[in-house]
Each structure stands twice: as structure tokens, then as C-alpha cells.
Design a protein around this nucleic acid. Structure first.
Lengths: 357, 357
DNA sequence: ATGAAAGCGCTAACAG
DNA sequence: CTGTTAGCGCTTTCAT
């Protein structure tokens, strides 16, 4: 009376073997790239497989090979276009390399260990942590079980995990020099998370260079890498009796929120009354309403390096942890007052400010 | 001379059993929530497990149970904060329900079948497609193998897949009525993708209501759901000799890009010279620079419904596909001229415009 | 080039 | 409550 049973078990290699009149191992070979099967049998097998809707079961394969063909990727739960662009690009790149991405969200405040503990149960082949910190305890454990770990846009001191970052310190130094050359008087830094090596490195580079230039007092707020946090920080900064005229936000996402608040809530002309600079060069940075001056982190390049690091470790090509820094550059737009000299147009038409040029 | 071998195989239940002096199945029980083990033995087993760094192998479990504890989720490759917020929320919600999320990116232009074919190889328990279309062929195939499919923010005609969307048609009708009550003269719609049921439903609702109000000519452009596409569409629209004074963009992401261009490239005062309305109510919509009037899609509610739909289908509680519409409301902000009457403040303080109020 | 057989690490009846 | 026994669907020797 009813249609075909909707819950019939998927076809197995055994079913296909029977249908094609071959052994089950022949079926396995037919679906294994470099295996030795005669074209004739392979064809018969493929035909039978198609007829039965057969799809090799990756779970069974994983059990034998010990590799699930899965990369665990964690990404902070809060919204940040840079993280998501990275996640998308990593997922696409790993798919091309034949790996699936098992995604998890990490709570920036609770630490990533509990999440990672979950991820390991899936027998992932490697771990990529996007802007997520790693306890040295956990890093060591991963090293012990031979699990490659690559931190993306973050670092650890431990040599148990590799990392791919932008030029945090150098970029921040460039930004400081750029703002100083732009004749700014009062500086402020809006940090991300205190626990973030990236935020700390950018802070150090920024402060270092400004100090070298003779700037003594630099304001500082913590924006937690969130829009709300950045808004609050900027309100606090700009409400002061002597507000800063140059604000460096630890990333673009916060910088965009900062521009929004400075312009609308304080009626300031961003780029003249106050300069705001970010870090990342996300897509929205170039939107006309923002036109953000920022130090770029080349996403595709960083993803390429991260995927290569994972694959090399998987192949055993890379035995020691590497700390890779993808080169960026200062993209000069309208959100910060420009220096009178030193600006240059790059090959791709972008206006930059080469630090030593 | 060297440290512990870094590539020793992970401990198995068998190893733990030997160490604890019990059978291997006892170990299995000790790690299965409702199984019958005496507290004493369980304790011994857990101790041995900890000592050996044992972690139950989910792959082996999956092979037996036939359920990988994995939900396949695809998300469009292009940047859109709404998709990513959805992905994050879905991932967190499924993690709470004990499922991992296997993420894939779908190329909006190439169709999702090849990607889904990949996903199925992992023996996922269900599929969630975020803003991705589904061929009816594939939907049928999933139905045949008993795989629950839930489309998020999209629909199919086929009853083979469930869907969770916002009130696309009603929302768009409300927007049309709102703009008409705001005494606008010339209307335009910026569509997303032609292949998107969501964009089509919004378009239909918008056009329908405007026609009912006696509006004849309505401009139309296609923004492909991308910022660049929306910018181009708006430039084209506003460059006309008689440009529209009311633009409805199929989603917030395009609406924000539209505001950016209208304000900076055309020097228009958005909300006075030209009204721009979106759909979604993403976080950035409330940013002071945008202050976007938009029809909300309640993300948490939609995610709750989607997860429930998946879980119910997995339990067999839900046998027929459901098409769930999460109720939204028009959030009135400053990017569109307001009608003189009909505005109301909701319980949570948001300014809304109840269509029939 | 092909088949037979032995597991991968675990769960799920079954006995006891 | 606990141990024994079969497999889950596939890859991988090892023969042939």
C-alpha cells in the first residue's frame, strides 16, 4: 500500500559485490584510486554500484586507516567577519585536499580545552584553532598523541603547536609610525582580549614605536574583540576632556564599530577630527562609509600556509612546530589623517605607506 | 636518548580493560551513560582510562550504531553575517544536543549537489542547508535513504525536505505598506539570487502590496546577495534621471552596502533623500552609521526550530516534511522615512510598525 | 588481477 | 552486574 520503505539500509560493498559477481575486496579496489583492477571488472562494479546507490562508507574506512579524514576547526562564538572569512577559506581549501571540516565554536572566555576534548573524540587528523588560545597542557597532550595543531591568527609560547599569523608587531609599529608622521597628538589603543597573543603583540609594537618617538601617555581600553565592547571603549575615550586624536583598534571589526560611534554619536569627522586605524583589511574596510586605513592580513596567503602546515605535519614532512608570519602592508584609506610624505601606490593600485621607504 | 615516542597509538578499550582487570565490554559500559556497571568497577575503569589517556573512539561506535553523530551543514561561500551567525548558532545548538557539525561551503552558482554528494560519504545523520538551494533529485535521494534534510532560510517545493524561514512574503508586504505609508514615490527592489526562493518570496510580497496600493512601475536589480552586487545595483538605480526614493534590498547585508554607497558616492541623506530597507536584522543593522530599518528574522528562534526539526526527524517523531515560518517584525530605525502614524514601541523597547495596527 | 581471511575498536545481544 | 561472542563495512595482507 505504501511506497518503498524509506529506511532501508544503504548498500554495502558486499551488496555491490554480489550484484556484480565479484568479491567484496574487488569492490573496495574499484573505489581505491591506485588499486589494481582490470578496466572490465571495474566497469561492472561501478555499474552495479550506481544501480544500488552505493557510496563507500568513510566511517568504516576510518576505523581501519585510523584517519577520519577530518580536520577539527574551532572558531570563536562571537561575530567577526575575519574569523568567518578564514573559516570559509579553510573549509574550501581542506575540501580540495580531501578533508572534511568538523567545526566547533569556542567560548573566548571559558577557554578551549573542554571543546577540544570533544573534538578529539571524533578522531580528527589535525586541529586548527582560529583566534583561539590553547592551554600548554592541551598542546602537550596533542603532541603526545601525534596530532598536528595549527593556531590561526594566534600563538602559543609552547613549541607543541604551530601558528600562522600576520605581522602583528611589525604591522602595529608601522601603524604607530604612520600616525606619528600624520602629526597626531594623543594616542589610544583599543585592545582585543587580554588573553590574545595577537592583541598583545599589536599593543607592544604600537607602544614601542610611539615610545621611541617620544610619546609618553597612551590611553588604553579593552574592546574584547566585540562591536559592543569597542563602542563602549570609544565612548569612554572620546568623552574625556582631552580625547585622543588617533585610535588604533586591535582589529578591523572593532575599528568599524569605532568609526560608527565616533561619527554618529560624537559628530566627529573621522579622518580629520579623529583618526581610526584597524588591523586585518576585511572586505568591509573598503566600504565607502568606512574607508578604513588598516594593516592587512592576507587571508588567502594565511590559509594557504595553515593548510600547508597541517598537511606537512600529516605527511611527516614537518616535524618541528613552525611559526609562520604572513606579510601584510599598511593600506592607506581615509579614516586616518595622512602624513605629507611616504605614501606609495602599489602594483595593484592600493595606496600604502612602506615603513622604511 | 629521546622522549616518549610521539606516535604511539591511542589507548583502546581493550588496553583499559587489561589495566583495570575487567572485560572490554565493561569498559564500554563504563563510558555509556545508561549502562549497568557497579560504581566500584566503573571507578577502577575510569582511573585506568585516565592513566592511559583513553578516549572512546567515536568512529568505531559510529560503525556499529550506523549514526556518525554528525550533522552536515553547508553555508554559501560568500560573506554574509547572517549566514555566519546562523552557522555559529547551529553549531553551538547541535553541540549541546551531542552532535558535531561537518561544515561545507556551497558555491551559490554551481549548485549544491556535488558538495552534498561529498557530505553523504561521511554518513552524516542529517543535513542542514543554510541559504542553499536543493535539487529535487537530491532531495528525493535523501528521502529514500531516510536522511533528514532541513533547509534554513530557503525552501523547496518538494515535500522531501523541511524548511525553516522567516516571514518572507508577509515581511515584504509589511515593508511595502510601511514605505507607501511613508509617502514614497518611486520604488525599487534589489533581489538576491534569482535561484533563491527567499529572494523571490520577498519580491512577490513587495510587488503585490505595492500593486494593491496602485503603484505601477517598480525598478528591479539583482545584487546576488553580495556587497559588490548591491553596490552596483544601487549605483545603477541612483544614476537614473528619476531615481527611486525607496529601495528594498532582499537582505541586510546588501542594504548596508547600499547605504554606504548612497551616502558616500551620491551624497544622499539616507532616511530623507532616499529610504533603504533590509531584511534580517543582523547585529550591524543597529550600528549608528547604518541605523537600518529592517524586517527581523529571529535567529535564535529559527535555529531552535531547525534543530528541533532535525532531532524530531531523527527520532521519527516527525514523519512528514514541515515548512516552519518564524515570526518577525518590522524594526523601524532611521534609514527610511517614517509614516506619520502606526508606529508602536514593543515590550523590549524596539520601535515597530505593526502592519494591521 | 582477483579472492579469502583477518581484523580496525567498539556495541549489542546473550548467558551466567 | 559482568563476561563472551558476534559482527558494523571496510582495507589489507596473503595466496592464487
Amino acid at each position: 500500500m505504501s511506497d518503498a520503505p524509506p529506511d532501508r539500509r544503504p548498500a554495502t560493498a558486499h551488496d555491490v559485490a554480489k550484484a556484480a559477481g565479484v568479491s567484496q575486496s574487488a569492490v573496495s579496489r574499484a573505489f581505491t584510486p591506485g588499486a589494481s583492477v582490470s578496466p572490465a571488472t571495474r566497469e561492472r562494479i561501478v555499474a552495479a554500484a550506481r544501480a544500488l546507490g552505493y557510496r563507500p562508507n568513510l566511517v568504516a574506512r576510518s576505523l581501519i586507516t585510523g584517519r577520519a579524514n577530518l580536520i577539527g576547526v574551532t572558531v570563536p562564538a562571537n561575530a567577526n567577519p575575519f574569523y568567518h572569512a578564514a573559516l570559509n577559506a579553510l573549509t574550501a581549501a581542506f575540501a580540495r585536499a580531501g578533508y572534511g571540516v568538523l567545526m566547533f565554536t569556542s567560548d573566548p572566555l571559558r577557554g578551549s580545552d573542554p571543546v577540544l576534548e570533544e573534538v578529539l573524540r571524533y578522531r580528527v587528523d589535525a586541529l586548527v584553532l582560529i583566534s583561539t588560545s590553547l592551554s600548554s597542557h592541551f598542546a602537550d597532550e596533542c603532541m603526545n598523541i601525534g596530532l598536528p595543531v595549527v593556531m590561526f591568527n594566534r600563538k602559543t609560547d609552547s613549541d607543541a603547536a604551530s601558528s600562522v599569523t600576520g605581522q602583528n608587531r611589525e604591522g602595529a609599529r608601522t601603524i604607530a609610525a604612520f600616525l606619528h608622521a600624520g602629526r597626531h597628538k594623543r594616542y589610544a589603543y583599543v585592545a582585543g582580549l587580554e588573553s590574545s597573543s595577537t592583541s598583545r603583540d599589536r599593543e607592544e609594537g604600537f607602544f614601542e614605536t610611539l615610545r621611541e618617538k617620544g610619546v609618553k601617555a597612551i590611553e588604553r581600553r579593552v574592546g574584547q574583540y566585540t562591536a559592543a565592547g569597542a563602542e563602549e571603549a570609544v565612548v569612554s575615550l572620546l568623552s574625556a576632556s582631552k580625547p585622543p586624536d588617533a585610535i588604533f583598534c586591535a582589529n578591523d571589526h572593532m575599528a568599524l564599530a569605532a568609526i560608527s560611534v565616533a561619527r554618529v554619536r560624537f559628530g566627529l569627522n573621522v579622518g580629520e577630527d579623529v583618526s581610526i586605524v584597524g588591523f586585518d583589511d576585511i572586505d568591509m574596510a573598503r566600504w565607502p562609509v568606512f574607508d578604513l586605513t588598516t594593516f592587512s592580513q592576507p587571508l588567502d596567503d594565511m590559509v594557504r600556509r595553515a593548510v600547508a602546515a597541517v598537511l606537512d605535519q600529516l605527511n611527516g614532512t614537518l616535524d618541528t612546530a613552525l611559526h609562520d608570519e604572513a606579510p601584510g602592508r599598511l593600506i592607506v584609506r581615509g579614516s586616518a589623517r595622512k602624513p605629507r610624505t611616504g605614501l606609495a601606490t602599489a602594483d595593484d593600485g592600493a595606496l600604502t605607506w612602506p615603513m622604511r621607504g
